[in-house]
Write a protein that binds this DNA or RNA. Structure first.
Lengths: 90, 90, 90, 90
DNA sequence: ACCTCGCTGTCAATGC
DNA sequence: GCATTGACAGCGAGGT
């Protein structure tokens, strides 16, 4: 049963703090939404310029993957180097 | 470096087992696809009978939500109350 | 303003028909859900048999792609080439 | 057959334009990522202050839903009424 | 360490 | 036809 009554009460101070937290999150989510809209816009413009959107997305995706793989590799190298498993380029 | 050569080999038995697993998954995905097609079909028939498809989908969606939403409500109420959500949104 | 009152009324016959349509859709969606659960189950079993689930999913995905794909790849190559991401065949 | 050779070539001008488009998208995605990280951070801080993160997320989600849902309700009510999901205003 | 859940990004379908 | 919206699969974080 849920009668809608909260199980606990919050002090006014706590409520105020909570409000701030939620407000901050919502503000940031709004920002994120705007940036997402801008990205969409760029794809839209590209499309109306004759670009193949799907391929364009694929390019961006692949480049991201490559970046990640390289990143992982370099951390890995750092570790291996630290462990003396590989030699630095002399 | 990845020369494309597998790091390990599978016995014939293991290969056979793998084949079976993949086959089973693919068979189930096929089934799922068929059911999805049937659903689409029903909406199609409904539409050609004059139903407002969008509204129909909304009904189904809402009924599903209603079935779900019946959890965590208590703690939630505390927060919502604190945020003044019990009052109309300004 | 939405006072919750429907804009139009439906005859009893129409209501009955509507009920049937919704029921049929919900039944099919239930089926679909079950099949999805079975797929998940297969992956689960595979995992507990020592399979690398992520790799397994990749296999299934690639096989599906192979079945479909053999398009757009050339546009993609064009883009990647333009960006210097891949090398032309010399 | 896909031998990896692009079907078409791009002029230098076109290549430059493509580069710009991709660069712009990547820059915006970077921004989005940063904002997402900030959001995550806020949740993290909230948690270390003793908030129930799950509930907090639920609050944010519900408030978003509330802001949205205020559409199509009229036709919808007709259908829901027919299905006995809601009662007519007596 | 595993598992669940939520989020994100992609793809297809529908309406304008 | 394009734009919007919804569905789905994949990934990652967080909790147990």
């Amino acid at each position: 049963m849920d009668d809608g009554a909260p199980a606990v009460s919050l002090s006014e101070t706590a409520r105020e703090k909570l409000r701030q937290v939620v407000a901050k999150i919502e503000r940031l989510e709004e920002e994120k939404k705007e940036v997402a809209a801008q990205i969409k816009e760029v794809y839209g413009e590209a499309k109306s310029m004759g670009y193949d959107t799907k391929a364009l997305r694929a390019v961006v995706r692949l480049r991201k993957q490559d970046r990640q793989e390289r990143e992982e590799q370099s951390i890995l190298d750092t570790y291996l180097l630290a462990l003396g498993e590989i030699e630095p380029l002399t």
